[in-house]
Design a protein around this nucleic acid. Structure first.
Length: 579
RNA sequence: CGGCGUGUGGCUCAGCUUGGUAGAGCGUUGCGUUCGGGACGCAGAAGCCGCAGGUUCAAAUCCUGUCACGCCGACCA
């Protein structure tokens, strides 16, 4: 391929709406073009990258006995009504009618389609276990697409679904998938991807893991223990709080005028935030009763945990003067029995709590929950903090990092097989619902994430395993006949031995050529110029600047061949075998 | 869905306060000089100033509405 013919424009100035580096570089480098909110087209350079990622994934899925299938993008609503998700999923699911007026959806995930595909086939236990997967476009009408290809509405995803006749077998296969995923990320060239335990969300099921690429621009918060190997999504991390119990004082109702925030109250009463009780009010729906979450003043409510606890969607509630709650003065003691409330573990074991008195302008001091309330039931609904206690090794060694979720694996259980009535007959002639697992990787997001963690100020630095080309030949002064001849020959020689070369023989100034090469991010670069040819050599560099050397014209092709092998070997050295 | 912000050639932006013939740089087309990190000169093409109403002799500029996009939050397999 010649740069001169490459479809896609590279340019110098950073587009104004790009906030993260990878987005700006991929737009500037002619990798992708904005089409609409959260919708992008891929230019040839990016398509070559995503195709390579897809092939790495495909190979690993096939290696664990996956079978590639293809589900439709447009699915009839009846399928989603079977699983109940036509109703339960919000506006993310695009619904529309066809010409006959029947309801359809755009596939945002394919559990229903997977069950529909195999429920007749897999009626006998002898067909199990098996896994099917596809690599395909999905559409999710995200509330807020952002960060270029990191969070989009339409994207390519590899999604896989496995079916089993026992939990033990799912556990066994889940581990194999777990390893296959690690291999995929290692082969793609991002061994820095970590796995974390996660919340299962709308997918249902119990056990799930997310694959996170750690970067400060990530959207998710990840809890990592510095002592043991514990790691978790913030949403799923248990918050352990140790309080030292002071002797309980007498319960007193004190006047705290205009103290509506925890900071105000503690400043006014000169008390420690760590012995205060904060109330956060939610509602399932606008007219439902209030759900009040009480946490220690210095903690935040983890809404995902609360949502799981109350078993449904919740939204922060607005309190008006007519309500049974007094905004700013809500406390667990003497609270209206019209509300549902939860007390977080962070409030356990404190002798003297400062809490709202449920009365305008008043707080209690000396509140002892175990003494003053009946049947205190502590639940875990707060967010763990930096330096918190590790739920695994119990040491105070938690750090919180940001990451991009590039993949996930779930144990689904029988949620879909039951609702969609997929059954098999076992060896005793009895019917059972198969147990499912599902496994996803976002291809475009992965490409963008690699760029985000592997780039410099000039452009992406693609690992050779997914680079759009392996070598880029820069022919400086293509108007010089001898130079052009050497470059042409090297391009042909490399192509002939199966090395993917991108050839720049444009008559542009060297600066332009180098800038473009940096933006494209090809790992190996050969510079052929009249100056180098005076020494009968060419210059060979790597995009990451680790290698910069002169090689004779005759040996160039051989050197590049070996360098290419070395770069692949470097990546393979991170890849672990299956145990 | 809430808060803030922005819409002017392909890109980055100025002009708007104080209404009066639409600008610059990059890119692009042609010619010439250059040639190891986004060169220079000359000549050219390209914009109903997001859209719709209103005020006015006159609107990119003022007013109203609307749409789109971005950021923060909410939400999210």
């Amino acid at each position: 391929m010649k740069v001169a013919n490459l479809v896609g424009q590279r340019f110098k100035e950073k587009p104004s709406d790009c906030v993260i580096d990878s987005h700006a570089l991929m737009v500037r480098g002619g990798f992708m073009k904005y089409v609409g909110n959260g919708i992008y087209s891929e230019f040839p350079v990016l398509r070559r990258i995503t195709a390579k990622i897809e092939n790495i994934i495909r190979k690993e899925m096939d290696a664990i006995d996956g079978q590639e299938v293809l589900f439709p993008v447009v699915l009839p609503a009846v399928l989603w009504e079977e699983s109940g998700r036509y109703e339960s999923i919000g506006n993310e699911l695009v619904r529309f009618k066809d010409r006959n007026g029947s309801n359809h959806v755009l596939g945002m995930t394919h559990e229903e389609a997977a069950v529909q595909l195999v429920r007749e086939y897999a009626q006998s236990y002898t067909k199990y276990p098996f896994m099917i997967y596809q690599i395909q476009r999905k559409f999710r009408d995200e509330a807020r697409p952002r960060a270029g290809m990191i969070r989009v509405r339409e994207f390519t995803m590899k999604d896989a679904y496995s079916f089993h006749t026992s939990q033990e077998d799912l556990d066994r296969y889940y581990k194999i998938c777990f390893q296959a995923y690690n291999r995929i990320f290692q082969k793609v060239g991002v061994p820095e991807v970590v796995t974390v335990k996660s919340d299962s969300g709308i997918m249902g099921g119990s056990v799930s893991h997310e694959y996170m690429l750690l970067t400060p621009v990530g959207e998710d918060s990840i809890v990592i223990c510095n002592e043991c190997d514990y790691s978790s999504n913030m949403e799923a991390a248990e918050n352990i709080v140790e309080n030292t119990k002071a002797d309980s004082d007498k319960l007193l109702c004190v006047e705290t005028p205009n103290c509506k925030t925890i900071e105000d109250v503690c400043a006014f009463l000169k008390s420690d935030v760590k012995t205060s009780c904060k109330a956060v009010v939610y509602q399932k729906n606008i007219d439902d009763k209030f759900v009040v979450a009480f946490v220690r003043g210095d903690y935040e409510v983890n809404e995902t945990k609360l949502r799981n606890l109350v078993g449904g969607e919740i939204h922060t509630a607005e309190i008006t003067a007519d309500d049974c709650l007094v905004a700013g003065y809500i406390g667990p003691y003497g609270i209206s029995n019209e509300v549902e409330f939860y007390i977080d573990v962070s409030l356990k074991g404190i002798g003297n709590i400062v809490a709202g008195a449920n009365k305008e302008g008043y707080h209690y001091t000396g509140l002892d929950l175990e003494r003053d309330l009946e049947n205190v039931n502590y639940v875990d609904i707060s967010k763990i903090k930096e330096g918190g206690i590790c739920p695994c090794c119990k040491k105070s060694a938690i750090t919180i990092k940001r990451g991009i979720e590039v993949g996930n694996i779930f144990q689904l259980g029988t949620k879909y097989t039951e609702t969609m009535n997929m059954q098999y007959t076992d060896e005793n002639g009895e019917s059972h619902y198969p147990i499912m697992g599902c496994y996803g990787i976002g291809v475009g997001r992965l490409a963008a994430s690699v760029c985000e963690v592997h780039h410099d100020e000039y452009g992406p630095i693609w690992p050779i395993s997914i680079a759009p080309w392996e070598v880029q030949i820069c022919c400086l002064r293509a108007d010089d006949e001898d130079t052009k001849q050497v470059a042409d020959k090297l391009y042909k020689d490399l192509t002939d031995i199966g090395i993917e070369a991108l050839y720049d023989d444009r008559q542009v100034r060297p600066g332009v050529m180098f800038s473009d090469a940096d933006l494209i991010g090809v790992p190996i670069r050969v510079i052929i110029s009249p100056r180098n040819l005076k020494e009968s050599s060419v210059e060979i560099t790597t995009r990451d600047k680790s290698i910069k050397t002169m090689v004779s014209v005759e040996e160039a092709a051989e050197y590049i061949k070996n360098l290419r092998l070395k770069l692949f070997a470097d990546i393979e050295s991170h890849v672990q075998d299956y145990k």
